[in-house]
Design a binder for these strands. Sequence first.
DNA 1: CTGAGATCCTGGGGGC
DNA 2: TGCCCCCAGGATCTCA
Length: 270
Amino acid sequence: MPELPEVETIARGLAATTVGKHIHAIDVFLPKMLITPNKQKINILLGDSITAVSRRAKYVVLNLASGRRLAIHLRMTGRLIFYPNTDVSRPPHTHVSFTFTDGSQLHFADMRQFGRLRLIDVSETWDADGGIEPLSPEFTAEYLWGLLHAHRAQLKNLLLNQNYISGLGNIYVCEALWQARLSPIKLTHTVSRPAATRLHRAIVQILEKAIAARGTSIDDYVDSRGNAGTFQHSLQVYGRTNKPCFRCKDRIVRTIQAQRGTWSCPSCQK
DNA sequence: CTGAGATCCTGGGGGC
DNA sequence: TGCCCCCAGGATCTCA
């Protein structure tokens, strides 16, 4: 499931391959995957060109010469696959395809159909779900401590909430909590300053390492060239049910929290 | 403000 | 071998 490092990897790949391309054709095979303002037609983008590709939260953002933007959320199984040349075949479960004037193509595919491609108008203000970017200078240990103490939630639930911090998902939250030795069900307002500092450092370090590893490929994730990431080899707790904790040798447990699998070490995460 | 539960989907795994 | 059932889960919605 693409989280911040996977989306960052995809955005960087597309920045290298699609910037400067002019949109020649758009094929929509599953209209519900599109969200457009005022029922605007996606074909308004014909003739437009890509000026930049960036990431905001878990969205890949295609910035266009017209000032419009396409914000693409991949949810669990979404993919953005770039084809350098026109191909009669498409990736499986392709729902929207862009063909550029040079014949190259960008395909938006999603097996489970949870992803969305959102057209943002020139005048529209859009900031994903408003959370702070965890790799921005504004995200400090002090900021995190303040955030934790402004709420009374279970730690994992707050970290997953995109209104507060952008881009964290199940994998990296489990990993960060393990590294910081904090229980996923600990209440946010009880986290001490040293613990908040540990958690801040863990979040930043793990995201940076995962970006360097081009993301985590467990089930479905591949980048825009179809290549898998490698961070799955560096996971410390995620998916390691009943295996020994790398820190204290106790067994990792899997619990359900907010209807999601949660992995933690009951001995050294307090 | 917070959480619980349902919803959307389909491929894959477990059980028989 | 084949078939049925169930499950994974990010974001959003309703309801408490």
